[in-house]
Design a protein around this nucleic acid. Structure first.
Length: 300
DNA sequence: TAGCCGTGGAA
DNA sequence: TTTCCAAGGCT
């Protein structure tokens, strides 16, 4: 036992201040409004996977206006989802969201399922997103462990600056132990802890003066010891296949008609890497090769 | 399981 | 300018 994992105070003593803080300071985000529905929540969760709120907002609004129900999206070619995804990044998410909409239309009568296991079975939905949709849309009791919540718990309960690289069994156990007993309170707790991590207990510039549980925070009480262990190496981006893929797909997104090979060749000088990136996009189903060396976003 | 998968704003 | 990182998922 290296780091203390026990809270000095009972979990319930955290619920009231954190939920009360949320009631006062929560952002008015469109997917939190009742009219968003489960589909709106689900779309927002896909878009918010690794993409900041401010960049999601306009795309989310356009998406829901165009495809207000899962069946509306499912009826479109996947390439239309990729195009509408715009520059949110990680465009495979658009493909997965389209696939999830098809599965919902075919297997769930067009309604976003409410059971965690059924959500988890959909493409693009992992442990976090399944819990988030079930909690936010259907007000169920789930441990919702995203990067914000993990950081809040690491600090407040465990007393360390940053959570481990990958989510651990200990974190899941802690999150379950901290969960309020009642469904609705648990759903509020999930949203509130996430918001606290996003607005106050941030990765680089936490503001403990605005934190409703600063007096109970194990990390602050320990004098905010700096993170030990291995540094999280962020991948370099310039020069990677990811950058090449991004450039290639940008050309295809912006063209309604199929694009000739020459237009793709223009975005990257080195031919081997360029070909590898294009092959990868085709293999991922993000690009459809046509006869005559032309390419387009996928129709199927 | 560690590495891969985009993008752009902030520090 | 460079680095960090933002509501992850998949293999």
């Amino acid at each position: 036992m290296t780091a203390t994992t026990a809270t000095q105070t009972p979990p319930a003593s955290l619920h009231t201040p954190v939920i009360g803080w949320f009631d006062q300071h929560a952002r008015d985000l469109p997917w939190r409004r009742p009219e968003a529905g489960a589909w709106g929540v689900m779309v927002s969760e896909f878009m918010l996977q690794q993409t900041p709120v401010n960049r999601v907002l306009p795309v989310y609004e356009q998406w829901l206006a165009r495809w207000p129900r899962p069946a509306d999206l499912a009826a479109q070619p996947p390439g239309e989802a990729v195009r509408a995804w715009g520059r949110l990044g990680y465009p495979r998410r658009a493909l997965r969201l389209h696939g999830a909409a098809q599965a919902i239309t075919e297997r769930h009568g067009g309604d976003v399922p409410s059971e965690h296991a059924q959500l988890l079975a959909l493409p693009g939905i992992g442990e976090y997103t399944a819990a988030a949709v079930a909690s936010f849309a259907y007000r169920q009791r789930h441990a919702v462990l995203d990067t914000n919540v993990r950081r809040v718990f690491a600090r407040a309960a465990t007393g360390i600056q940053y959570p481990p690289n990958a989510t651990t069994a200990a974190e899941r156990k802690l999150a379950r132990a901290l969960l309020p007993d009642e469904d609705e309170q648990a759903a509020r707790w999930a949203a509130a802890t996430m918001e606290l991590g996003a607005l106050v207990c941030t990765a680089k510039s936490e503001d403990c003066t605005r934190c409703p549980i600063s007096e109970q925070c194990a990390w602050r009480l320990a004098g905010k010891p700096p993170h030990q262990g291995p540094p999280r190496r962020g991948q370099t981006y310039a020069g990677t296949d990811r950058q090449v893929r991004g450039r290639l797909l940008a050309v295809l997104r912006e063209s309604v008609n199929p694009v000739p090979q020459s237009a793709l060749d223009a975005v990257w000088e080195e031919p081997v890497q360029r070909a590898r990136a294009l092959d990868g996009l085709v293999a991922d189903g993000l690009v459809e090769p046509l006869a005559g060396g032309q390419y387009r976003l996928p129709l199927t």
